Amino acid sequence: MPESKSRKKPAESRTPARNEPKPNPVWYKPVMFGLMVIGLLWILVYYISEARFPIPEIDSWNILIGFGIAIAGFLMTTRWR
């Protein structure tokens, strides 16, 4: 039995989309997760050491620093592809 001829696709569908986002670089995911983990560890060390570490002179600002580092990692997730 003869096969029917396949239809040609329109020219628009043959060309790749120009607005496709580029994939992230290889380093993006490790940095993203690393920032989240470092921020968490910063806060844990502050609480476990009873404010003696990581930087004792700034006292409660250590919590803000830890959250800032973690939030930077979470903000990177919005650009992850």
Rank of each mutant, 00 (worst) to 15 (best):
M36K: 04
S6Y: 06
I48W: 04
L40D: 08
A51V: 05
I38C: 06
F53N: 05
A72T: 09
Y47G: 07
I69D: 03
R7G: 13
I38W: 05
G34I: 07
E50I: 04
R14A: 14
I63N: 08
R79W: 13
W61Q: 14
T15I: 14
E12N: 11
E3Y: 13
S60N: 14
N19M: 05
N24C: 00
F33L: 15
Y28C: 00
W61I: 12
I69Y: 02
P2R: 10
M36A: 02
K9Q: 11
I48A: 06
F74I: 13
R79I: 10
L75T: 00
P23C: 05
A11L: 13
N24Q: 03
A51K: 13
F74L: 14
S6V: 08
I55E: 04
I71T: 08
L35R: 02
E12G: 10
W42Y: 05
V26R: 13
I65V: 12
G66P: 01
P23E: 04
M76Q: 07
L64E: 02
P16N: 03
P16E: 12
A17D: 15
M32N: 08
S60L: 14
P2S: 15
G73H: 09
F33P: 03
M76W: 05
V31W: 02
E20A: 14
E20L: 12
A51C: 01
I43R: 03
R81W: 09
A17H: 13
T77E: 04
N19D: 14
E3F: 15
R18A: 15
P30D: 06
F53V: 08
P30T: 08
A17F: 11
V31L: 10
G73I: 07
P56H: 07
L41W: 07
R79M: 14
L44M: 07
A72M: 09
M32A: 12
K22E: 15
G39Q: 02
P30E: 06
Y47N: 10
W80D: 15
M32R: 08
I63T: 11
A11V: 13
Y46H: 05
I55A: 07
P23I: 07
F67P: 00
I38H: 03
A70G: 09
Y28A: 06
N62G: 06
E57N: 12
P2L: 06
R18Y: 06
L35G: 06
G66H: 01
I65R: 02
L41V: 14
P23Y: 03
N62A: 09
G68Y: 06
E20G: 04
P23H: 11
G68M: 04
L64A: 12
V26Q: 08
L75D: 03
P54H: 06
Y28W: 13
I71Y: 08
L35A: 08
I65C: 02
K29E: 13
R81L: 12
I43D: 04
R79D: 12
R18M: 12
G68F: 00
I71V: 05
M76I: 04
E50G: 09
T15Q: 13
V31P: 00
R81F: 12
P21Y: 08
R79Y: 13
R52F: 00
K9I: 15
E50L: 08
T78G: 11
L75A: 07
I65D: 01
S13D: 13
V31E: 03
P10E: 03
K22L: 15
A17V: 13
K8W: 07
S13C: 06
R79V: 11
I69Q: 03
